[in-house]
Design a protein around this nucleic acid. Sequence first.
DNA 1: AATAGCTTCATTTAGACAGCATGTC
DNA 2: CTAAATGAAGCTATT
Length: 698
Amino acid sequence: MRAQNPEGARLGLKEWLEERGIRRLFPVQELALQKGLTEFKNLLVSAPTGSGKTLVAEMAIKNALDNGYKAVYLTPLRSLAFEKYASLKKIFKDSKVALSVGDYHAPEVGEADVLVATYERMDSLLRHNSPWLKEVGTVVVDEVHYVGDEERGPTLEVVVTRLKLMGKQIVALSATVGNPEDLASWLDAELVTHDWRPVKLEEGVMDPSSYEVLFEDRVEEVKEVLSDPGLDAALHYMREGQALYFASTRKRAENAAKKISKLLKPDKVTKEWAERVRIEVEGELGEVLAKMVERGAAFHHAGLTNEARLLVEEAFRSGAIKFVAATPTLAAGVNLPARAVVIERYTRYTDEGEAPISVSEYKQMAGRAGRPGLDVKGTSVLVARPKAPPEEVYERYVLGQPEDVRSALTSARALRRSLLGLIASKAVNSEAELVEFIEETLFGVTEGAANAIDDARRSLEFLKGAGLVEGVKATPLGTVVAKQYVDPLGAKVVLGALKRRKGKTTALGYLHLVAVTPDMPKRGLRSSEVRELWRVAEERFDELLIRDDEYVSESTALSALKVALALESWVKEEPEEVIAKKYGFYPGDLRVLSDTAAWLVHAYSEIAKFVGLYKHSEALAELELRLKYGVSEELVELVQIPYIGRVRARALWNAGIRSKEDFVKRADLAARVVGKGVVKRALEAMGLGYGLVKWVKP
DNA sequence: AATAGCTTCATTTAGACAGCATGTC
DNA sequence: CTAAATGAAGCTATT
């Protein structure tokens, strides 16, 4: 990609900046221009939060648009994508900005000038060979250090490598990492680094026994109030503004918020927020949260529903809430800076017991301190472990260098997924091309491709064995599996089981089958549950399609059974709260499970249809609707009426309204059950004006 | 006899993308 | 190779 008129474009950029009231550029911004941002050079900007990376991205987009190209902005999280979409829409008023993430795929993507998408969504667009991509000149990759992530990194690595090979300008933004040179060389990019921040960040380490916080240039004493070092530190710095508290578990986050809330006083504004929380967050959790919000504190973790999380974020951003205790959801995700950050622990339980978090993770959290434009400085406090010398902790984390980013493209799971995607979308058509591609990945560039190629050959064999690939070409089935975006191994397991199963299959059977798949998040089992789960497994043995399998271990089958049972309760209309209690989930957890299951059931319905398993396909399609709404078979039709969910549908059914037709014909009765307004809106949405229906006063 | 309070022992521990076509109580 | 908070169960002291 080359600019038609670099000089003109550059002038345009200057004027555009002035119009936005930006007269002076931050160091990374200046450097990015010097290193060829407007000449469509690839860039890797590796700098701390707040150093001005955002404007570099915006300038790159502006430059692409001015030269007649389209631009793409990639982020790792849906929440960030929504934020970015909103802000880019404001900035580029004259251009079409579109958003494409799992939840939401804008219909106008085909004509968008700027597209904001998650990595996986971009992967999907590449797999579909969307013609729109040809017009893209620049791709901004936010948080590119995610390539090192075991789970999500491989997809990003493949996506960016493909875009690079397509000749797109890559403007990659990264937190500070240990080896920016490696990333730059992978991207064929000019390296832009600078450690300047607009708000000074003071990082301290607290000795929990002496209550002293060790900073670079001084030691500060914290007053002991609650006999909890972390919370007392938060209280200490809250005198100067809001505090963000990173807790090590959900429970601890909740307790922290509860304790702090007791020391704060309600006012008019917090009471209003509490009222909103009460209305919008259902059940016990809503009540618990509302009580704290009323006094200006809150907690934030993935057990909360999305709505609840957004509410907490908004309340904090507005200033009403003074204290938020969060698990790492908030560290990488939302842009929610605070005057002070307190990190209560730097160790975390893992499979191998207690393990220290990485320096990068620490920096990610600490970097949230200091609100640009509001604070002169930000303060972060890391609480040392009781017996650890604070000086050593300071050395390790505050003075420590973030770790190197290494390719994660090596795991079998990552390879088989990526490979199928590459082959199905014809990005590689021969072994030679495959090798060439791998040489261009981060793995190939930094470690030499030989090892990766060996592993890739093995994955290729697996794909062939599963009937997804022949030679280096995708079979029709392989194309469908790639399009549905499920793990090839899951597809193999599921198809095998469906083919074997001739007789009738219950919801539990299907749910267990998809839950066994690698795409379904696994819930750990509590030891008290294991016995009961074995009992159920025996009792309902005939319903299960997978008992043991070459690719499914007994333990995953058992924990999948737990997930399947919880989802079965969901589609049997048990109240969310009852399910949550029974299985030890939070409402947010259940939402994630039912969403994921709905996606998988949909995908496998399509795949089953493709191979001629029509009965299974239809049953799965019905189950998808049941999962989405949490209803039994008989309510599936009703729930498809606009504004009718699981609760209203059940009420209608019990009143004798059993179908859409009933609903329309007996609108008077329906109105008595769910209210006049709902019926009116529903009929209008279905294209039937309210006037068509006679209203009978109850 | 009921119960608050303490001790002991076992148990548990963060997060979150994707398909598809539009609106819960 | 590694910890610590939580919660249930069991027990004692108190009213």
